[in-house]
């Protein structure tokens, strides 16, 4: 009786567990595979429905349309530019600040830490921030993507916590060799922070790449500052409730050339894939860093 129960129980549990896990994997992956299939299927055929995991009428037209040199192609490069520039700048400045507050002897260590940490608890809100951006003449300027979010309190604390785990002797010996704080930071601390910087870089880059609200708010009247996510957003809102190819797309110029094959639905699928791809490619390699980083982040003061 007892042995029977012991043997039956794990089997029941494991089958249940496996079903849940497979279900989760399917529910997570299916939308991607479906989008991928739609993106390689001819637009006029997709309207007929029934595309699941594999394209029925294979075509690359949707991608050709995206990269045909129109607005979407330009938006792609704006997205790349803002991601790269903001990530590099943010990493450098945040870790430099983190280094200064990791120095126990620094006079302003406490006040700086408090001022930064407080920014996690409140923000002035949408309207005052909008006016600030306006007063600084950042509206409809590329800099509005870079400048406002350079320093994040959370990232600063994560990096500082990491620097504090490095052996103090490293900094002392650099100082004895005559290096100033800036030299010490650049040539010793910055390179040693690589693991934590990888995590923070991932967070900043993903945030930049995925961001659309700043475009919407601060640069929507400037066509040549549009980003990939913003283009996708415009397509989404124009075609969410009308799946027919009659829906007017904002990416008109790219589509007119290949109108028969390409519909808003299919081009949306292609942009979704293009905008998800960098993340899908990079992220398996980053996994060990960000799991570690999550744990670092929960290490408190």
């Amino acid at each position: 009786m007892k042995t029977k129960q012991l043997r039956a129980e794990p089997i029941v549990f494991h089958s249940f567990n496996t079903i849940v896990m497979i279900l989760l994997a399917v529910v997570t992956l299916y939308p991607f595979l479906n989008t991928l299939a739609v993106s390689f299927n001819a637009g006029n055929d997709t309207i007929r429905g029934g595309i699941y995991l594999w394209p029925r009428v294979w075509t690359q037209q949707n991608y050709t349309a995206v990269f045909a040199g129109g607005a979407i192609y330009h938006a792609f490069w704006i997205s790349v530019a803002r991601t790269v520039i903001a990530t590099v700048l943010s990493l450098f400045l945040t870790s430099m600040l983190a280094y200064t507050v990791s120095r126990k002897e620094y006079v302003f260590r406490k006040p700086i830490t408090i001022i930064i940490v407080l920014t996690m608890y409140f923000n002035a809100g949408l309207i005052p921030s909008y006016f600030l951006i306006k007063d600084l003449h950042l509206l409809n300027s590329f800099y509005v993507y870079i400048i406002p979010g350079l320093i994040s309190a959370f990232n600063m604390i994560v990096i500082r916590t990491y620097i504090q785990t490095l052996p103090e002797g490293l900094i002392e010996s650099a100082k004895i060799d005559g290096a100033g704080d800036f030299r010490t930071f650049i040539s010793i601390i910055f390179p040693l922070c690589q693991p934590v910087l990888a995590t923070v870089a991932l967070f900043v880059a993903v945030g930049q790449w995925n961001s659309w609200f700043d475009t919407f708010l601060y640069a929507s009247s400037k066509e040549n500052l549009s980003t990939l996510q913003y283009e996708l957003m415009k397509l989404l809102s124009s075609s969410m409730f009308s799946n027919s190819n009659a829906a007017v797309s904002s990416s008109g110029s790219a589509m007119n050339a290949v109108q028969n094959m390409v519909t808003p639905v299919s081009i949306r699928a292609a942009i979704t894939i293009v905008s998800a791809l960098p993340i899908l490619v990079v992220y398996p390699f980053m996994q060990k860093y960000f799991v570690h980083g999550m744990q670092l982040g929960s290490v408190k003061e």
Binding site: L24, A25, T28, L29, V206, W209, N210, S211, W212, Q229, L232, M233, L236, T272, S275, A276, I279, L280, Y283, P284, Q287
Partner: peptide, 13 residues
């Protein structure tokens, strides 16, 4: 790995 994936996608997607 599969389960984290959507976390990194934008709300637009």
């Amino acid at each position: 790995t599969i389960s984290y994936l959507p976390h990194f996608l934008s709300w637009i997607i």
